[in-house]
């Protein structure tokens, strides 16, 4: 029975990583940079949620939607202020990375000023502590996380596979110059990509907030592990990000229970290092030679 309980927990934690990892992958495939502040948007949305639902007493669902949208808007502003100014630097990886690290520090402390250092509590939408599934007791919030993530993934899949806008975003990611020649507004596509990725991060933050506390640093470790998950998944595919996220969540949960609780946070990185040594392009990654 414990195994099933742990599996549910692992899938739920993994879903959170998967959502944030999806954000990493979207931005990376679109503009070839890593947003090191990606995880912090989980924190941003969770704080918005607390303000809207706990302080302003908005209905849970409405607060939920508004918070996710606000996280997307924050992501849009973030790319405008931080990514756009450095994107044309030669060898732009380092400047962009450093700028986003700076952005992460800034966001965390901006919210420290706004909300103070005391951790806040976001109640779950469910009143009861556990539900009984044929003898197995699980947190309903975990089930909610898994269901919402599954729906979100299906939605994203529909968006990228079935809509013209989704295909235009993919086209922009694959060859921006040609995309422009086709009439695609690539700047808008990139801004949309950032907004979507931070909205996904925000969604993850709101879902996980009732399980943990809402603190200014809650996003950084989620972000780092999600980043690890996206690399394990190959860093270039949606499928990889999801499977990588779920795998890290499950390994961490089981490892934390059966091997060592103290080192729970280390498992993601140990898995990552093993992958980088033995399968450097991840589960679904392709080796791409640099064009000379």
């Amino acid at each position: 029975m414990q195994v099933i309980q742990l599996l549910v927990t692992g899938l739920a934690v993994g879903s959170i990583y998967a959502l944030v990892a999806l954000g990493f992958v979207l931005v990376y495939t679109a503009v070839n940079v890593v947003n090191f502040a990606q995880g912090d948007f989980s924190m941003v949305a969770a704080f918005f949620m607390v303000s809207l639902v706990v302080t302003a007493h908005l209905p849970y669902a409405l607060g939920f939607v508004i918070s996710v949208i606000l996280a997307g808007i924050a992501g849009y502003l973030f790319q405008l202020g931080i990514y756009q100014p450095v994107k044309n630097r030669p060898r732009n990886f380092l400047p962009v990375m450093i700028a986003t690290v700076g952005g992460s520090i800034f966001l965390q402390h901006l919210f420290l000023i706004l909300y103070g250092p005391v951790p806040l509590q976001l109640p779950s939408v469910f009143k009861q502590q556990t539900v009984d599934l044929g003898g197995v007791h699980v947190y309903p919030q975990y089930l909610l996380i898994i269901v919402v993530t599954a729906v979100m993934v299906a939605l994203l899949n529909w968006f990228f596979e079935r809509t013209k806008l989704g295909k235009q975003m993919q086209a922009t990611a694959q060859d921006p110059t040609t995309a422009r020649l086709m009439g695609i507004n690539t700047a808008r596509m990139n801004a949309l990509t950032f907004a979507m990725s931070t909205a996904l991060g925000g969604l993850a933050g709101i879902l996980v907030a009732p399980v943990y506390m809402v603190t200014t640093t809650m996003g950084s470790l989620i972000g780092l592990k999600a980043f690890a998950a996206s690399i394990v998944g190959g860093f270039s595919s949606v499928k990889g990000a999801i499977i990588g996220g779920l795998a890290i969540g499950i390994i961490e949960t089981f490892g934390g229970t059966y091997i060592s609780g103290a080192y729970r946070d280390a498992f993601a990185f140990i898995v990552l290092v093993l992958f980088l040594i033995f399968r450097p392009y991840g589960l679904f990654g392709e080796k791409v030679s640099q064009k000379v």
Binding site: K164, K167, Q168, Q170, A171, Q174, D175, T177, T178, A179, M182, G183, I184
Partner: peptide, 20 residues
């Protein structure tokens, strides 16, 4: 040629209509 490598032939053609 600059075909979008990760899109199918149909999707590449669809992209051609992005100007309207």
């Amino acid at each position: 040629r600059r075909i979008f490598p990760g899109l199918t032939v149909r999707e590449n053609l669809l992209m051609g209509t992005s100007n309207r």
